[in-house]
Amino acid sequence: MDGLRGFVSDGRLLRLPARQSKRRVVLAHLALSFEPGRRFPEKEVDVVLRAWCAGGETDHVAVRRHLVDEGLLSRADGVYWRSGGWVDVLG
């Protein structure tokens, strides 16, 4: 996906874009890591996001916060679920 160029490479998040519209594209891509309809404990979300952020400029906690702020993940009582973003209906 063209909007990811310069921000995601080889399954890693290099950095988050400053511009909100580009950041939303990158975050929506990361949200694909979370299966719709499934609940995730915070520790599991952190494992996934740490893997994305390894070696990059952005820490996983900031990414988690952005995902929630953008409505891509929701949370309650330390449990997260995917609440937005694209869904791959062909895969």
Rank of each mutant, 00 (worst) to 15 (best):
G85W: 03
K22A: 10
D46N: 09
R19D: 06
P36V: 00
V61W: 13
V89L: 10
G56E: 06
V68W: 06
D59M: 11
R39D: 06
V63T: 06
R65E: 11
L32E: 15
V61I: 14
R50H: 15
L4H: 05
S74D: 08
C53G: 02
P36G: 01
G3K: 00
R15Q: 15
S74M: 09
G6W: 14
R15N: 14
L14C: 04
A54Q: 11
L49W: 05
R39K: 14
V8D: 04
A76E: 09
H60D: 14
L90V: 08
W86I: 07
W52Y: 14
C53Y: 06
K22V: 15
S74K: 13
R38P: 09
V47R: 12
R39V: 15
F40T: 01
V47G: 05
V68E: 05
P36T: 00
V26K: 00
D10Q: 12
E44F: 08
F40P: 01
V89K: 15
R82F: 14
S33D: 04
V26Y: 01
Y80R: 01
W86H: 12
V45G: 00
V26A: 00
K43E: 14
V8S: 02
V48R: 11
G55K: 10
M1N: 09
Y80Q: 02
C53A: 14
W81H: 14
D2N: 10
E70L: 05
S83V: 10
L30P: 02
R64D: 04
V79R: 10
H66F: 08
F34I: 00
Q20W: 12
R24C: 04
D77K: 00
A28V: 04
A31R: 01
R19P: 05
